[in-house]
Amino acid sequence: MDTTERVQIASTFLLQSPPGEINDVLNAPDVRNIIGDDDLLQEGIHPALREYNIAQFTTVDVPGTGHQSIISEAARLPAENLDEAQERFLDPRSKTSFVFDHLSLEASNPQSFEPDAEHESFRVALQTAALLYLSSHFQDGVASVFFSTKDEGPEFVIQVVANKYNPTNFWSGRWRSEYVVNLTENTVVGKILANVHYYEQGNVQLSTTHNISFTLPPAIISAPSNTAASKIIALIEDEEGKYQISLNDTYQEMGEKTFKGLRRALPLTRQKIDWDKVLGYKLGAELSSSKGMFGNS
């Protein structure tokens, strides 16, 4: 197997890393031994790290500010010339662009950025409303609103990411959502992506994608910027709330039906299990003494 193939294998592992665990995967002996050369490994996997950070909405401390911004395709600025070696990303909140190191996850070389004057007031209104929504529903999260000009007309891209890492209890999770607001077509098109990893005495991952689209009522389009922005975020809040409820219902059903369905209807003793009684068993002596009753079910 040549070096290119080894780098490709290592990159595949990295792209599948659960939330907050990419460094654990990168530093795992099995991954590092695939190539056997740390310098070559870091050089070869850089494209995979870049792809991962952009897709996962990696957050970064913005130099000279007290907040974080999101690394994403919407945040990436086009190169000013073909010879530019380091791509720059934008923090629209502070009107700052910076270079991002995909390995160290640090920002550097900040520069001021001049936004589109015609659309900046509405972008700021969306940003303000998004931050209020973030503080109400996410314990730890980052929200950024970007502006871009497309063939379909001017677009505002709202992105939210929230991470929760709990290695002590062997789980981690990430919530990402993105919405494209097009005021020419009066539409909002978005998606929610949720990833959860639980790895205590096992390895279970949940990965979901939920698409959302709706048309903006005329009353919102004709409203002042601050009012329109607040109402758009309120509609997004409603959609995300409904999806959260559906996830909770799914978890409840899995606990009550799906996991029980994975077991035999009857143990080897042909006697039904009293599930309510099982919840009362003490770990240790009582559970061990009942081993014969459970058999291999």
Rank of each mutant, 00 (worst) to 15 (best):
F147S: 09
D91H: 02
L131I: 11
E286Q: 07
Q8L: 12
E155Q: 13
S17C: 03
P29N: 09
S222N: 11
E51S: 03
F294Y: 06
Q68N: 11
H210M: 06
D140A: 04
K277W: 06
Q252T: 14
P47K: 00
H46T: 11
L90E: 02
L15S: 07
F214L: 07
S290E: 07
Q244I: 08
S213M: 13
S207Q: 14
K242T: 05
D37S: 12
N53K: 12
V142Y: 09
I236E: 12
V204C: 04
N186L: 06
A125K: 07
L279D: 05
F147R: 01
Q68V: 06
N211K: 09
D238P: 00
Q205A: 14
I45A: 13
P217K: 15
R270A: 15
I71F: 06
L126Q: 11
T59W: 11
A117K: 12
I233K: 09
E73I: 03
H197V: 02
E114K: 04
T59Q: 01
I70R: 01
A10R: 05
R270D: 15
N182P: 03
A143T: 05
Q56P: 04
E5F: 12
I236T: 03
Q56L: 02
Q68C: 06
V188N: 09
I70A: 00
T3R: 12
E152L: 05
G20C: 02
E73P: 15
P18G: 02
V60Q: 08
A219I: 06
A285Y: 00
T59R: 02
N186W: 00
E114C: 00
H102S: 05
A194E: 01
E155F: 08
F146M: 10
A85R: 10
I9L: 15
E87V: 13
T3Q: 08
G261A: 10
T168F: 09
N182K: 06
G64N: 07
T96Q: 05
S290N: 04
T65Y: 00
D249A: 10
A48Q: 02
F294D: 01
S121W: 08
I212D: 08
I212Q: 03
H210E: 11
A75K: 08
G64V: 11
Y251N: 11
D91C: 10
L103P: 00
I220W: 05
G202Y: 00
N166V: 05
S288D: 13
L131D: 15
E178K: 09
L268E: 15
L77A: 09
N53T: 12
T12S: 13
K257W: 07
D274R: 04
Q139L: 05
R93W: 02
V189N: 14
P110D: 09
Y199I: 08
S136E: 14
L193M: 14
L15E: 07
R264L: 12
Q127G: 14
L15A: 01
E256R: 08
R93M: 10
S225E: 15
I45C: 11
R174F: 07
H210Y: 13
L14F: 02
N163C: 04
S72Q: 02
V188W: 07
T208K: 01
T4H: 11
S112F: 04
G292M: 02
